[in-house]
Design a binder for these strands. Sequence first.
RNA 1: GCACGGGUGGCAGAGUAGCUAUGCAACGGACUGCAGAUCCGUGGACCCGGGUGCAAAUCCCGGCCCGUGCUCCA
Length: 462
Amino acid sequence: MTLRVYDTRTREKRELSTLEEGKVSMYVCGITPYSPSHLGHARCYLSFDVVHRWLEASGYEVEYVQNFTDIDDKILDISDSEEVDFSVVANRNIDDYLEVMDAMNVLRADYYPRVTETIPEIIDMISALQEKGHAYVGDDGVYFEIDTAPEKFGQLTGQTLEMVRAGAGGRVADTGSGKRDHRDFALWKLAKQGEPSWESPWGKGRPGWHIECSAMSLNHFGEQFDIHGGGHDLRFPHHEAEIFQSECCTGTEPVVGYWMHNGFVNLDGEKMSKSLGNFWTIREAFENHDPLALRYALLSVPYRNPIDLTPEFLEEAATHFERLIVAYGKSLTSNDHSGSDLSGASERFTAAMDDDFNTRAAMIEIQAVVSSSSGSDVAAWLERHAGEVLGLLPSSEEIVAGLAQADSARAEVSDRVESLLGEREISRETKDWSRADEIRDELASMGVVVEDGPEGPTWHLE
RNA sequence: GCACGGGUGGCAGAGUAGCUAUGCAACGGACUGCAGAUCCGUGGACCCGGGUGCAAAUCCCGGCCCGUGCUCCA
């Protein structure tokens, strides 16, 4: 069984082959912390969390780097309006991000480099590009000159230089930037009055948006690394700019082995994004949804496909999640073996994950196991597959604590429930259905669900 | 407009030529006073039009539709 990964650049699923046997270097574009993260971000980092987990489960040693773009125009806009330092805004939103990710069982990356802590490396890289003739100094900053490496254009989007030239109209003049060609992009932006800035050979300023990722990946991994992830919208210009910067700087290509891009979260068929304003922050979603149920929902569609968030979609996921938790709890407290052979499910699960991380297919296997067996072996199976690999389970301690709490809650109302149930059974025996239903309603108002079975009624709290 | 991705049953989602995908939902039956749970079973799809094959959801051509990108964006 081999792991196949879809690569945006070559547009095919390829067997994963890494630079160093048994090791994977993975870089994922992180957030720009100018506002609280929304569900689109959740989907991205959840997707790559599963990539991270599955690679490790497959025996790879993974080095995972995710950046924070902690200085940028929008952060400055907000810090201006709040009259606080930009770092206040950035730190606040980074904390928010890490908190909600923790709540959704997202494992931490190994490094979270920040732009503001990578300035010397960025400056070195820009200097190298300038020396090699790929960068020039304009009125308001330093730019990468696309025409010095035109053959690198369009690797991730298939666009040609001409197309983009044609599409842009007279934007160069509009922006008043110091670019020679509108397809060139900023490496270093000179500071305007009052903006935070860092010293550089070109004057005080700050890095352009794309250069940080090139500098950070070079810094952590060297000239080449295995996987680069990010949202689908980053393919152009951001990731193509990275290819220009990294490969022109080092002369080594390709800089990235596999470009992975996750699909969007849509609301009413449209991309959820901050600029469109049609987003839910992750925290808002937590108000109505268990973080792990949300994780379940967002992983229940393969990472490259779009997800249309509808109430039905979220409900279905919540139902499955609930079943999983209940089944896990039941198996966890069982001393018996299920007597089932779970090897087929394991094989199909592995095949699904090996096929470009098809979490959907993998989760169907989990559903099948959940609905067909229970026992101590099932608990172990779920821990490995639903827990370690997909991160869908709370810790067994939490589950056990939850069960204990449920037990005590149950014990609290038990006497009252039993006496009502006894009364109801008498009513049922005398076919006094209206009285029986009345009692059931009364129990329901106490949060007690009654289920009549062949061996009499059973009840549980909900 | 151009580029990329995609259009499979109510929803999600496999399937790159021949054999029931699958899950949820729906429906029918069993069981039920009813409800619920459970069990058994059923129907239902390949955007349109051409083409190549003995055979096409699957390959080719032409349309149409949707999403994203071309501007900050996961």
